[in-house]
């Protein structure tokens, strides 16, 4: 008989591919729907930044580390766009679900913790890459966007999106109100990003300031992206790559442990 409906429990193999893909799609699309604010807003803000810096430096050939001002700053803006979106998407998604009670859709679905983690990670990378690409597109007329080392660029964009995406998931689990999300953004993410050597070379800074920036993981991400785009780096790129890899794995482990225990997810 054609079209019989099996009444037994749904069977899937070792990995619930459909469920993981469904969670990934949900996490990706729910915020991209709002593309006017989440994509065009940041892209426009970055375009304005670039305009202001270009006009202020007065068209005089301002160079930082042998690069044009625009070429030096564009990688930082692209990273900030990617990282901020990965962070916000992850944080808003989980906080919204917890506040509205729809978190049950995530908890009750027949997914293992690792599958949930994979879906979250995939969504963060998508959000980061799409936002980074949008900013790269608007900066095209100003800076040399064509990458010198495409593999390094892709590695650091993906790793940076994962780093901030997992941070966003942890912040979303920790927060109890929208105020907390706003506070993490204003007092943690934005200062860490802006003070990471996004807009200036760290080399002429005094020792203490350089030490502080060297302790900021986002410095290595931005430095790596700048290396990928222009070939110029201020720190050892392979060491930076390893450091970021270690941090991403560490945060992934933390998110895994928290979601598995149901920290602030299950009453």
């Amino acid at each position: 008989m054609a079209g019989s409906i099996p009444l037994g429990p749904r069977r899937f193999g070792r990995i619930n591919w459909i469920g993981t893909a469904a969670l990934y799609r949900r996490e990706t699309w729910r915020l991209q729907k709002d593309y006017l604010d989440s994509l065009l807003g940041p892209a426009l803000a970055n375009l304005i930044f670039m305009l202001i810096l270009t006009v202020t430096s007065g068209g005089r050939a301002t160079t930082i580390g042998g690069l044009n001002l625009a070429d030096f700053i564009a990688p930082g803006l692209i990273m900030f766009a990617a990282g901020e979106r990965a962070f916000s998407a992850a944080c808003i998604s989980i906080l919204f679900d917890r506040l509205e009670g729809t978190i049950a859709d995530v908890i009750m679905a027949p997914l293992t913790t690792a599958e949930r983690l994979a879906a979250f990670a995939g969504a963060s990378v998508s959000a980061g890459l799409v936002s980074g690409a949008a900013t790269a597109a608007v900066l095209w007329p100003f800076a040399d966007i064509l990458p010198a080392h495409p593999a390094a660029l892709l590695y650091f964009l993906v790793a940076g999106s994962l780093l901030l995406g997992f941070t966003g998931t942890i912040a979303g689990l920790w927060a109890r109100r929208w105020d907390h999300y706003a506070a993490v953004l204003a007092y943690f993410l934005i200062p860490f990003s802006y003070l990471s050597g996004m807009f200036y070379s760290t080399l002429p800074l005094p020792g203490l300031a350089r030490g502080l920036i060297a302790a900021n993981p986002l410095f290595y991400v931005i430095d790596g992206i700048r290396y990928g785009m222009t070939g110029y780096a201020e720190a050892d790129v392979s060491q930076g790559a390893l450091l970021i890899l270690g941090l991403v794995l560490g945060l992934a482990g933390l998110v895994y442990a928290l979601v598995r225990r149901g920290w602030r997810l299950k009453a």
Binding site: T56, A186, Y187
Partner: peptide
């Protein structure tokens, strides 16, 4: 406080980025 932090950040980064050329 949050607007204040933003203002100080902008002051820091623009002075650091452009202070020598302007």
């Amino acid at each position: 406080v949050s607007p204040l932090v933003t203002t100080l950040l902008f002051l820091a980064i623009f002075t650091l980025a452009l202070g020598r050329s302007v």
